[in-house]
Design a protein around this nucleic acid. Structure first.
Lengths: 146, 146
DNA sequence: TGTCTCTGTGTGCGTCAGCACGCACCCGGG
DNA sequence: CCCGGGTGCGTGCTGACGCACACAGAGACA
Protein backbone atom coordinates (compact mmCIF):
# COMPACT_ATOMS: atom_id res chain seq x y z
CA UNK A 1 0.00 0.00 0.00
CA UNK A 2 2.68 2.41 1.01
CA UNK A 3 4.92 1.24 -1.80
CA UNK A 4 5.71 4.44 -3.67
CA UNK A 5 5.75 2.63 -7.00
CA UNK A 6 2.46 0.84 -6.45
CA UNK A 7 0.61 3.42 -8.49
CA UNK A 8 3.08 3.15 -11.35
CA UNK A 9 3.08 -0.64 -11.29
CA UNK A 10 -0.70 -0.68 -11.35
CA UNK A 11 -0.73 1.76 -14.24
CA UNK A 12 1.55 -0.46 -16.30
CA UNK A 13 -0.57 -3.50 -15.58
CA UNK A 14 -3.80 -1.78 -16.43
CA UNK A 15 -2.30 -0.63 -19.68
CA UNK A 16 -0.94 -4.07 -20.47
CA UNK A 17 -4.29 -5.74 -19.98
CA UNK A 18 -6.65 -3.13 -21.37
CA UNK A 19 -4.91 -1.93 -24.52
CA UNK A 20 -4.84 -5.34 -26.25
CA UNK A 21 -8.48 -5.83 -25.27
CA UNK A 22 -9.42 -2.45 -26.73
CA UNK A 23 -7.48 -3.14 -29.91
CA UNK A 24 -9.18 -6.49 -30.38
CA UNK A 25 -12.59 -4.99 -29.71
CA UNK A 26 -12.16 -2.20 -32.25
CA UNK A 27 -10.65 -4.48 -34.83
CA UNK A 28 -13.36 -7.08 -34.40
CA UNK A 29 -16.33 -4.76 -34.46
CA UNK A 30 -15.17 -2.14 -36.94
CA UNK A 31 -11.95 -3.36 -38.53
CA UNK A 32 -10.08 -0.45 -37.01
CA UNK A 33 -6.69 -0.97 -35.36
CA UNK A 34 -6.31 1.11 -32.23
CA UNK A 35 -3.58 3.10 -33.97
CA UNK A 36 -5.97 4.08 -36.74
CA UNK A 37 -8.62 5.08 -34.24
CA UNK A 38 -6.16 7.20 -32.32
CA UNK A 39 -4.91 9.01 -35.41
CA UNK A 40 -8.43 9.56 -36.74
CA UNK A 41 -9.61 10.88 -33.39
CA UNK A 42 -6.71 13.30 -33.11
CA UNK A 43 -7.27 14.58 -36.63
CA UNK A 44 -11.00 14.89 -36.10
CA UNK A 45 -10.67 17.19 -33.13
CA UNK A 46 -7.88 19.27 -34.66
CA UNK A 47 -8.60 22.86 -35.80
CA UNK A 48 -9.48 22.29 -39.47
CA UNK A 49 -9.67 18.53 -39.07
CA UNK A 50 -6.08 18.50 -40.26
CA UNK A 51 -2.61 18.24 -38.76
CA UNK A 52 0.88 18.22 -40.16
CA UNK A 53 2.71 14.93 -39.90
CA UNK A 54 5.01 16.27 -37.24
CA UNK A 55 2.26 17.64 -35.04
CA UNK A 56 0.36 14.41 -35.49
CA UNK A 57 3.41 12.47 -34.37
CA UNK A 58 3.67 14.66 -31.27
CA UNK A 59 0.04 14.42 -30.26
CA UNK A 60 -0.70 10.81 -31.22
CA UNK A 61 0.74 7.85 -29.39
CA UNK A 62 2.90 6.68 -32.26
CA UNK A 63 6.36 7.86 -33.13
CA UNK A 64 6.93 10.56 -35.72
CA UNK A 65 8.32 8.07 -38.18
CA UNK A 66 5.47 5.63 -37.78
CA UNK A 67 2.93 8.32 -38.56
CA UNK A 68 3.97 8.38 -42.21
CA UNK A 69 3.15 4.72 -42.65
CA UNK A 70 -0.09 4.77 -40.69
CA UNK A 71 -1.31 7.80 -42.63
CA UNK A 72 -0.40 6.05 -45.88
CA UNK A 73 -2.52 3.10 -44.83
CA UNK A 74 -5.38 5.41 -43.92
CA UNK A 75 -5.08 7.09 -47.31
CA UNK A 76 -5.24 3.72 -49.04
CA UNK A 77 -8.35 2.96 -47.00
CA UNK A 78 -9.88 6.27 -48.05
CA UNK A 79 -10.21 7.57 -44.50
CA UNK A 80 -7.62 10.32 -44.83
CA UNK A 81 -6.20 12.48 -47.59
CA UNK A 82 -2.90 14.27 -47.71
CA UNK A 83 -2.78 17.90 -48.76
CA UNK A 84 0.29 19.97 -49.34
CA UNK A 85 0.81 23.10 -47.32
CA UNK A 86 0.91 26.06 -49.75
CA UNK A 87 2.91 28.04 -47.24
CA UNK A 88 5.59 25.38 -46.77
CA UNK A 89 6.54 22.93 -49.50
CA UNK A 90 8.05 20.47 -47.03
CA UNK A 91 5.02 20.21 -44.84
CA UNK A 92 2.13 17.85 -45.54
CA UNK A 93 -1.29 17.91 -43.98
CA UNK A 94 -3.26 14.82 -43.10
CA UNK A 95 -6.99 15.53 -43.38
CA UNK A 96 -9.85 13.28 -42.34
CA UNK A 97 -12.26 12.47 -45.15
CA UNK A 98 -16.00 12.36 -44.60
CA UNK A 99 -15.74 8.59 -44.83
CA UNK A 100 -13.06 8.70 -42.16
CA UNK A 101 -15.30 10.76 -39.91
CA UNK A 102 -18.14 8.33 -40.51
CA UNK A 103 -16.00 5.35 -39.57
CA UNK A 104 -14.86 7.22 -36.49
CA UNK A 105 -18.41 8.09 -35.45
CA UNK A 106 -19.43 4.46 -35.94
CA UNK A 107 -16.51 3.12 -33.93
CA UNK A 108 -16.54 5.64 -31.10
CA UNK A 109 -19.46 4.09 -29.16
CA UNK A 110 -17.71 0.74 -29.12
CA UNK A 111 -14.53 2.35 -27.95
CA UNK A 112 -16.23 4.35 -25.22
CA UNK A 113 -18.23 1.34 -24.12
CA UNK A 114 -15.12 -0.81 -23.90
CA UNK A 115 -13.31 1.85 -21.86
CA UNK A 116 -16.36 2.10 -19.65
CA UNK A 117 -16.58 -1.64 -19.10
CA UNK A 118 -12.89 -2.25 -18.52
CA UNK A 119 -11.92 0.96 -16.76
CA UNK A 120 -14.31 3.70 -15.76
CA UNK A 121 -16.99 1.38 -14.42
CA UNK A 122 -14.63 0.27 -11.67
CA UNK A 123 -13.98 3.82 -10.50
CA UNK A 124 -16.11 6.27 -8.57
CA UNK A 125 -16.65 9.72 -10.05
CA UNK A 126 -14.27 11.23 -7.58
CA UNK A 127 -11.63 8.60 -8.24
CA UNK A 128 -11.88 9.09 -12.00
CA UNK A 129 -11.49 12.83 -11.58
CA UNK A 130 -8.55 12.44 -9.23
CA UNK A 131 -6.82 10.00 -11.56
CA UNK A 132 -7.35 12.27 -14.55
CA UNK A 133 -6.08 15.31 -12.70
CA UNK A 134 -3.10 13.51 -11.21
CA UNK A 135 -1.99 11.98 -14.49
CA UNK A 136 -2.56 15.33 -16.14
CA UNK A 137 -0.03 16.84 -13.77
CA UNK A 138 2.42 14.08 -14.63
CA UNK A 139 1.97 14.83 -18.31
CA UNK A 140 2.36 18.56 -17.80
CA UNK A 141 5.67 17.96 -16.05
CA UNK A 142 6.58 15.11 -18.34
CA UNK A 143 8.34 17.23 -20.90
CA UNK A 144 11.72 18.01 -19.35
CA UNK A 145 12.19 15.16 -16.84
CA UNK A 146 13.19 12.19 -18.95
CA UNK B 1 -12.58 17.82 -17.46
CA UNK B 2 -15.83 15.96 -17.16
CA UNK B 3 -14.90 13.78 -20.11
CA UNK B 4 -15.37 10.27 -18.76
CA UNK B 5 -12.44 8.97 -20.80
CA UNK B 6 -10.06 11.71 -19.69
CA UNK B 7 -8.53 9.48 -17.07
CA UNK B 8 -8.01 6.68 -19.56
CA UNK B 9 -6.57 8.98 -22.20
CA UNK B 10 -4.18 10.45 -19.66
CA UNK B 11 -3.15 6.97 -18.58
CA UNK B 12 -2.29 5.99 -22.13
CA UNK B 13 -0.29 9.14 -22.66
CA UNK B 14 1.63 8.78 -19.43
CA UNK B 15 2.46 5.23 -20.37
CA UNK B 16 3.51 6.23 -23.87
CA UNK B 17 5.91 8.87 -22.62
CA UNK B 18 7.28 7.24 -19.50
CA UNK B 19 7.87 3.64 -20.55
CA UNK B 20 10.35 4.45 -23.34
CA UNK B 21 12.14 6.81 -20.97
CA UNK B 22 12.36 4.13 -18.31
CA UNK B 23 13.61 1.59 -20.81
CA UNK B 24 16.32 3.93 -22.06
CA UNK B 25 17.37 4.78 -18.53
CA UNK B 26 17.70 1.16 -17.49
CA UNK B 27 19.44 0.16 -20.65
CA UNK B 28 21.87 3.05 -20.50
CA UNK B 29 22.80 2.75 -16.84
CA UNK B 30 22.75 -1.01 -16.38
CA UNK B 31 22.34 -2.62 -19.80
CA UNK B 32 18.97 -4.04 -18.75
CA UNK B 33 15.98 -3.84 -21.07
CA UNK B 34 12.79 -3.07 -19.21
CA UNK B 35 11.49 -6.53 -20.11
CA UNK B 36 14.45 -8.16 -18.40
CA UNK B 37 13.99 -6.00 -15.33
CA UNK B 38 10.33 -6.87 -15.14
CA UNK B 39 10.94 -10.60 -15.44
CA UNK B 40 13.79 -10.54 -12.94
CA UNK B 41 11.72 -8.55 -10.46
CA UNK B 42 8.77 -10.92 -10.72
CA UNK B 43 10.99 -13.95 -10.27
CA UNK B 44 12.83 -12.34 -7.36
CA UNK B 45 9.68 -11.80 -5.34
CA UNK B 46 8.16 -15.18 -6.18
CA UNK B 47 7.93 -17.91 -3.48
CA UNK B 48 11.18 -19.78 -4.10
CA UNK B 49 12.56 -17.15 -6.47
CA UNK B 50 11.15 -19.33 -9.21
CA UNK B 51 8.11 -19.42 -11.44
CA UNK B 52 6.88 -21.69 -14.18
CA UNK B 53 6.90 -20.19 -17.65
CA UNK B 54 3.14 -20.03 -17.72
CA UNK B 55 2.79 -18.30 -14.38
CA UNK B 56 5.57 -15.92 -15.39
CA UNK B 57 3.69 -15.11 -18.57
CA UNK B 58 0.57 -14.37 -16.55
CA UNK B 59 2.22 -12.15 -13.97
CA UNK B 60 4.78 -10.36 -16.15
CA UNK B 61 3.86 -7.83 -18.76
CA UNK B 62 4.90 -9.93 -21.71
CA UNK B 63 2.88 -12.55 -23.49
CA UNK B 64 3.21 -16.21 -22.61
CA UNK B 65 5.02 -16.98 -25.83
CA UNK B 66 7.47 -14.11 -25.47
CA UNK B 67 8.51 -15.34 -22.04
CA UNK B 68 10.33 -18.30 -23.58
CA UNK B 69 12.60 -16.06 -25.62
CA UNK B 70 13.23 -13.52 -22.87
CA UNK B 71 14.09 -16.27 -20.39
CA UNK B 72 16.44 -17.81 -22.95
CA UNK B 73 18.20 -14.48 -23.28
CA UNK B 74 18.43 -14.18 -19.51
CA UNK B 75 19.86 -17.71 -19.31
CA UNK B 76 22.48 -16.80 -21.90
CA UNK B 77 23.32 -13.74 -19.82
CA UNK B 78 23.67 -15.88 -16.72
CA UNK B 79 20.95 -14.08 -14.80
CA UNK B 80 18.48 -16.96 -14.78
CA UNK B 81 18.61 -20.75 -14.89
CA UNK B 82 15.94 -23.16 -15.95
CA UNK B 83 15.11 -26.16 -13.80
CA UNK B 84 12.79 -28.98 -14.65
CA UNK B 85 9.82 -29.74 -12.46
CA UNK B 86 10.22 -33.28 -11.11
CA UNK B 87 6.47 -33.52 -10.57
CA UNK B 88 5.56 -32.55 -14.12
CA UNK B 89 7.76 -33.28 -17.09
CA UNK B 90 6.15 -30.59 -19.20
CA UNK B 91 6.68 -27.78 -16.74
CA UNK B 92 9.88 -25.75 -16.51
CA UNK B 93 10.94 -23.38 -13.75
CA UNK B 94 12.79 -20.15 -14.31
CA UNK B 95 15.00 -19.36 -11.31
CA UNK B 96 16.95 -16.17 -10.64
CA UNK B 97 20.68 -16.72 -10.15
CA UNK B 98 22.65 -14.85 -7.54
CA UNK B 99 24.15 -12.81 -10.35
CA UNK B 100 20.66 -12.04 -11.53
CA UNK B 101 19.68 -10.85 -8.08
CA UNK B 102 22.82 -8.71 -7.91
CA UNK B 103 22.05 -7.07 -11.25
CA UNK B 104 18.52 -6.48 -10.06
CA UNK B 105 19.66 -4.92 -6.78
CA UNK B 106 22.07 -2.70 -8.68
CA UNK B 107 19.44 -1.58 -11.16
CA UNK B 108 16.54 -1.10 -8.77
CA UNK B 109 17.65 2.31 -7.41
CA UNK B 110 17.88 3.69 -10.94
CA UNK B 111 14.47 2.34 -11.75
CA UNK B 112 12.88 3.70 -8.59
CA UNK B 113 14.58 7.05 -9.06
CA UNK B 114 13.36 7.30 -12.65
CA UNK B 115 9.80 6.46 -11.59
CA UNK B 116 10.10 9.03 -8.84
CA UNK B 117 11.34 11.76 -11.18
CA UNK B 118 8.92 11.10 -13.99
CA UNK B 119 5.85 10.06 -12.05
CA UNK B 120 5.56 10.05 -8.28
CA UNK B 121 7.24 13.41 -7.78
CA UNK B 122 4.34 15.09 -9.58
CA UNK B 123 1.75 13.55 -7.27
CA UNK B 124 0.80 14.26 -3.71
CA UNK B 125 0.79 11.38 -1.27
CA UNK B 126 -2.98 11.29 -1.29
CA UNK B 127 -3.11 11.35 -5.08
CA UNK B 128 -0.60 8.53 -5.38
CA UNK B 129 -2.60 6.44 -2.94
CA UNK B 130 -5.86 7.16 -4.71
CA UNK B 131 -4.39 6.31 -8.11
CA UNK B 132 -2.90 3.07 -6.79
CA UNK B 133 -6.14 2.05 -5.13
CA UNK B 134 -8.31 3.00 -8.08
CA UNK B 135 -6.15 1.18 -10.62
CA UNK B 136 -5.98 -1.75 -8.25
CA UNK B 137 -9.74 -1.99 -8.38
CA UNK B 138 -9.60 -1.90 -12.17
CA UNK B 139 -7.10 -4.75 -12.13
CA UNK B 140 -9.14 -6.76 -9.68
CA UNK B 141 -12.14 -6.49 -11.97
CA UNK B 142 -10.02 -6.78 -15.10
CA UNK B 143 -10.29 -10.52 -15.33
CA UNK B 144 -13.76 -11.14 -16.71
CA UNK B 145 -14.50 -7.89 -18.54
CA UNK B 146 -12.44 -8.06 -21.73
C1' DT C 1 22.06 34.94 -56.20
C1' DG C 2 24.82 31.46 -53.81
C1' DT C 3 25.45 28.98 -49.76
C1' DC C 4 24.95 27.34 -45.19
C1' DT C 5 21.97 25.79 -41.66
C1' DC C 6 17.73 24.24 -39.83
C1' DT C 7 13.41 21.94 -40.19
C1' DG C 8 9.64 18.71 -41.98
C1' DT C 9 9.25 14.36 -44.21
C1' DG C 10 9.78 9.68 -45.99
C1' DT C 11 12.19 5.17 -45.82
C1' DG C 12 15.64 0.99 -45.29
C1' DC C 13 16.73 -1.75 -41.71
C1' DG C 14 17.05 -4.27 -37.41
C1' DT C 15 14.47 -5.38 -33.33
C1' DC C 16 10.61 -6.80 -30.67
C1' DA C 17 5.94 -8.41 -30.16
C1' DG C 18 2.28 -11.99 -30.44
C1' DC C 19 -0.36 -15.66 -32.89
C1' DA C 20 -0.86 -20.17 -34.54
C1' DC C 21 0.95 -24.35 -34.48
C1' DG C 22 3.44 -28.64 -33.13
C1' DC C 23 5.68 -31.50 -29.68
C1' DA C 24 6.14 -33.66 -25.26
C1' DC C 25 3.87 -34.89 -21.41
C1' DC C 26 0.09 -35.74 -17.83
C1' DC C 27 -4.23 -38.00 -16.72
C1' DG C 28 -8.50 -40.47 -16.90
C1' DG C 29 -11.74 -44.04 -19.01
C1' DG C 30 -12.31 -48.13 -21.42
C1' DC D 1 -2.49 -51.48 -21.37
C1' DC D 2 -3.57 -47.90 -24.41
C1' DC D 3 -5.48 -44.25 -26.19
C1' DG D 4 -7.96 -39.88 -26.43
C1' DG D 5 -8.28 -35.19 -24.59
C1' DG D 6 -6.13 -31.49 -22.03
C1' DT D 7 -1.98 -28.75 -20.73
C1' DG D 8 2.76 -26.56 -20.62
C1' DC D 9 6.17 -25.15 -23.48
C1' DG D 10 9.06 -23.69 -27.55
C1' DT D 11 9.29 -21.83 -32.32
C1' DG D 12 8.29 -20.24 -37.41
C1' DC D 13 6.20 -16.66 -39.26
C1' DT D 14 4.32 -12.10 -39.87
C1' DG D 15 3.35 -7.64 -38.60
C1' DA D 16 4.34 -3.34 -35.77
C1' DC D 17 7.63 -0.24 -34.15
C1' DG D 18 11.39 3.22 -33.93
C1' DC D 19 16.16 4.67 -35.09
C1' DA D 20 19.31 6.49 -38.27
C1' DC D 21 19.70 8.40 -42.41
C1' DA D 22 18.68 10.76 -46.87
C1' DC D 23 16.30 14.25 -49.19
C1' DA D 24 13.76 18.51 -50.25
C1' DG D 25 12.41 22.93 -49.03
C1' DA D 26 12.77 27.28 -46.04
C1' DG D 27 15.08 31.02 -44.18
C1' DA D 28 19.25 33.98 -42.90
C1' DC D 29 22.96 36.28 -44.54
C1' DA D 30 26.55 38.24 -47.39
Amino acid sequence: MTDPTAAWAALMRVHATLVPALDRELQRTHGLPLTWYDVLAELDEAPHRRLTMGDLGDVAMVSRSRVSRVVDELVDAGLVTKESNPADGRSAYAVVTTQGRRRLRQARPSYLAAVERGFTANLSIREAETVARALGKVLAAGGPDD
